[in-house]
Computed example of a mutant assay.
Amino acid sequence: MKIVNFVINKEHTKSFGILNADGIVDVGLHAGCRDINEFMAHYPLDSLQRYVALSADLQLNDISFLPVIDRPGKIFGVGMNYAEKRKEFNETNPAPTLFIRFADSQVGHNGTVIKPASTNEFDYEGELAIVIGRTGRNISAEDAPAHIAGYSCYMDGSVRDWQHKWYTAGKNWPSTGAFGPWLVTADEVGDPQNLKIKTWLNNRLVQDDTTANMIHTIPQIIAYISTFTQLSPGDVIMTGSPGGVGKTRVPPLFLHQDDVIEVEIENIGRLTNRIQDSALSGIVQSQTAA
């Protein structure tokens, strides 16, 4: 299934649903629960199968995409998890590198990603995102796949000159990350460690790799994180970005006003967003150094 989280344009009503060949089945309408976070807290996503055969209630032009999970309890990022990326940044630490993102740093598919006024080093990073579907703590790598609800694309926008010696400050400016276009359930994705992942900047291919080149596999990541914290339905894990980011290019290649950034992952879809400078967006962002 492809599960979409959205706002109905005409009604300004939030809901979520199943995307099929005819349009979108508004599950929120039929199930009496319009919040995907609330639904996942009480029901497994495979319970949505009962709605798959229903007629579409909406078309894609009737909705605006929200982040796939707009109010996750936790968003973890895994840094330096591809071989080429590690070479580009001279990374030698063998342990997984983790950071966190906040929910308000995300936008959905076709949403506007905001370049902070405080930086000239706003970078792109295309990533495979995991959505957790089952609660677990101390999950073994062998049991990890059973805890995954599905997968999506993520554009982990990075404010490089605010990463300092840790990543979190450079990852959490408002609307700097994008998550979508939809969640594809694990049964339809196939082997998540054998997916092509590509990023385009203004139709220029800037990242081109496969998830087979992850240093730490998806089961290993889930096992590692669940050792120190409980994972719950709706939690999100970004699994790292391939090489080819703008920071290490000569000359550097960063995001600017009106750029279009796209992340495509095999068997999942293509996430598209336009960049806007914060000075033109109406979003107030602090310009005081940390």
Rank of each mutant, 00 (worst) to 15 (best):
A146Q: 11
G150D: 09
G150M: 05
S152P: 01
Y154R: 02
M155A: 07
D156G: 09
G157D: 03
G157S: 02
S158V: 13
S158Y: 02
V159D: 05
V159K: 03
V159N: 01
R160V: 00
R160Y: 01
D161N: 10
Q163E: 01
Q163H: 01
K165F: 12
W166F: 09
W166N: 09
Y167P: 03
T168S: 11
K171M: 02
S175P: 04
T176W: 00
T176P: 05
T176L: 08
G177C: 15
F179M: 14
G180F: 09
P181E: 00
W182R: 04
L183A: 05
L183W: 10
V184K: 12
T185P: 08
A186T: 09
A186N: 09
D187T: 07
E188W: 09
G190R: 09
G190Q: 12
D191G: 09
P192Y: 05
L195T: 13
L195A: 11
I197E: 02
K198N: 09
T199D: 13
T199A: 14
N202S: 10
N202V: 00
N203Y: 08
N203C: 07
N203R: 12
R204S: 14
L205D: 08
L205N: 06
V206I: 15
Q207N: 06
Q207I: 03
D209P: 03
T210V: 07
T210E: 13
T210R: 11
T210W: 08
T210F: 06
T210A: 10
T210Y: 10
T211S: 06
A212P: 08
A212H: 13
N213H: 14
N213Y: 13
N213T: 08
M214H: 05
I215L: 14
H216V: 08
T217H: 06
I218C: 03
P219D: 15
P219F: 12
A223E: 15
A223Q: 15
I225H: 06
I225E: 04
T227H: 04
F228H: 09
T229W: 03
T229V: 13
T229M: 13
T229E: 02
T229H: 03
Q230G: 08
S232D: 15
S232E: 15
S232L: 14
P233M: 04
P233V: 07
D235W: 11
D235P: 10
I237Y: 04
T239D: 13
T239C: 15
T239W: 07
G240M: 11
P242K: 05
P242A: 09
G243H: 08
G244M: 01
V245L: 14
V245S: 11
G246C: 07
G246S: 05
T248M: 14
V250W: 03
P251K: 01
P252T: 02
P252F: 02
F254I: 10
L255M: 15
D258N: 14
D258V: 11
D259W: 07
I261V: 15
E262M: 11
E262L: 04
E264M: 05
E264R: 04
I268Q: 07
G269F: 04
